[in-house]
Structure formats: structure tokens, C-alpha cells
């Protein structure tokens, strides 16, 4: 029998509860992405880095070196430094 047909206070069915929880989950993601995250980002220690990441276009979310363009540049530069190290006169 459907829970809405029983006597006593109304309770949503398990299926409806699932959808309500899903909506709550989506809401929390929205809250984190558009309210909490940007608010925390205004902290003086965080804001300059956030602005820098935005301007430089560095893929700060990448987790392996092949996903980060700057690792390629770094490697060429460092290798060249070791191979063609400037000599003192």
C-alpha cells in the first residue's frame, strides 16, 4: 500500500524521498560551486592565487604531468640548462 494512503502524518514514499535527496544533493553542489567556493576564494591568502590561475590559464585541476602544458615548457628549459649550462668566464 502506498504510504500516502495510510493514516497518520503524511510521509513521502521511498521513491519520492530519493528524488528529494537527489534535489538536495544538486542544491549542495550549486551552493558549493556558486556561494561557498567564491566566498572562500575572497580570503586574502586565496584570492591572488585564484586570479593568477585565471590569468595564466594553468590547468590547476590536472593530476598528471601530461595534462599540464607548463611541465613540457619546464622540461625543455631545465634540460637545456643542464645540457647548455652557462659557463663562468
Amino acid at each position: 500500500m502506498c504510504s500516502c494512503c495510510t493514516e497518520g502524518p503524511w510521509r513521502p514514499s521511498a521513491r519520492a524521498m530519493g528524488w528529494i535527496k537527489l534535489a538536495a544533493g544538486v542544491f549542495f553542489i550549486w551552493l558549493f560551486m556558486f556561494v561557498i567556493g567564491p566566498w572562500l576564494q575572497k580570503a586574502p591568502s586565496v584570492e591572488p592565487l585564484a586570479q593568477f590561475i585565471e590569468e595564466s590559464g594553468i590547468e590547476a585541476t590536472a593530476f598528471y604531468y601530461t595534462e599540464v602544458e607548463q611541465t613540457g615548457d619546464a622540461e625543455v628549459d631545465i634540460r637545456s640548462t643542464f645540457r647548455f649550462m652557462p659557463q663562468d668566464p
Partner: peptide, 11 residues
């Protein structure tokens, strides 16, 4: 993570 290393290093 390498991306975070690059961002912090470049900073």
C-alpha cells in the same frame, strides 16, 4: 597533483 604544483610554482 601536478596541476596544483604548476599553479603554486608559477605563482
Amino acid at each position: 597533483a601536478t596541476g596544483a604544483v604548476a599553479a603554486a610554482g608559477a605563482f
